[in-house]
Design a protein around this nucleic acid. Structure first.
Lengths: 184, 184
DNA sequence: TAATTAGGTTGCAGGTTGCAACTAAAAACT
DNA sequence: AGTTTTTAGTTGCAACCTGCAACCTAATTA
């Protein structure tokens, strides 16, 4: 009845579209970076980024609306407004830095960044942003797979892996969520 | 002579603008994700993403131009063209997944992704994409700092950290690159 | 040979971006 | 006190980008 294919769902259920709703817009990441870099005021962003006034106004409003920046009038100078990263904003750092590192890696003119992002403890530049397994091993794209939700933990040899340990072939497991699989 | 302030440089020299030149455009990440998900042909992207034909055409061309996808006519059916991720394309995975995870974390309707991205070894879902120190410790935004390039490795207490070990206060070091600092 | 499929291109309506000029309110100077 | 400057916007307009629908071309299939 009707040829309403139902595509998209699979691809929409993944967090990416939500993320891109805000961060997919031009300047969003540049503002985020400037913000992390210690800029807090409209005119600072304006002159450092070279963005148009109206666009900056619009973008800041949208970032505030999405809870990535918080907007509060300055106590000492009530003309000034402070834009500061929220926790949600800081949580975008891995994505932003991963993007930067990728851009750097494949940039034609080699990039000599200054200021440099360092680990506070030893003040040495951080390593590459990495994909980790559930138990902390660094993974590359060859070590990754897309599988059906139902097959989580089911390895080729028939054994089932869990975050806690292993389960043998004959064991009955709760298929609804291999993460919480239990021996019966 | 002239008031040509020289802003931007600091913020341009960071890899982000380069990355955003391609990946900042609408659909770029969605196409990347579809590609990683096993789609290779024009019509597949078209029906799965719900993107307009002309835009898809344009975006694919741009991704190919930037070396993120490679475009090759199919051997068996010369109408068909295969779009496949290059190494450069796969290198965008940390950024893409970080973005997805962030989108998921802050999504209102909780996202139950299927298919799921798993570690090939144990087929368990991967952990959060993470920022790592040079020696592999997981860092959060509180453990990060932006410092001048010249201050790399210089800690508050005057000691100098290097990837290899420690250097005392009186030691002479090669300032040009603290990463390769040596005792004299 | 005609119909279908794959991958585009073209034209047009509507939305977004960006420059420049204007505004409103608070602060600083005279 | 009155004028000027600074901060954070808004408005108008031109150029560019998006997306829908229709069209095009080459290869394959019926």
């Amino acid at each position: 009845m009707g040829d309403i294919r139902e595509p998209l769902r699979e691809l929409i259920e993944c967090g990416l579209p939500q993320a891109l709703e805000v961060m997919g817009e031009r300047w969003a990441f540049m503002i985020l970076r400037a913000s992390f870099n210690g800029l807090h005021h409209f005119e600072e962003f304006l002159s450092e980024l070279g963005i148009a006034r109206n666009i900056l106004s619009n973008r800041l409003a949208k970032l505030v609306e999405h809870g990535i920046l918080k907007r509060e009038p300055c106590a000492d100078d009530r003309r000034k407004i402070e834009y500061r990263l929220t926790e949600k904003g800081f949580d975008l750092l891995p994505a932003m830095i991963a993007l930067r590192q990728w851009g750097q890696k494949y940039s034609h003119e080699p990039v000599i960044e200054d200021p440099v992002l360092v680990d506070e403890q030893d003040r040495l530049p951080i390593g590459p942003v990495s994909m980790l397994s559930h138990d902390g091993r660094v993974l590359d794209h060859l070590g990754l797979n897309m599988i059906r939700r139902a097959d989580i933990g089911r390895r080729a040899d028939g054994t089932i892996a869990t975050p806690a340990g292993e389960i043998g072939d004959g064991d009955v497991i709760d298929l609804s969520s291999a993460k919480r699989a239990v021996r019966k």
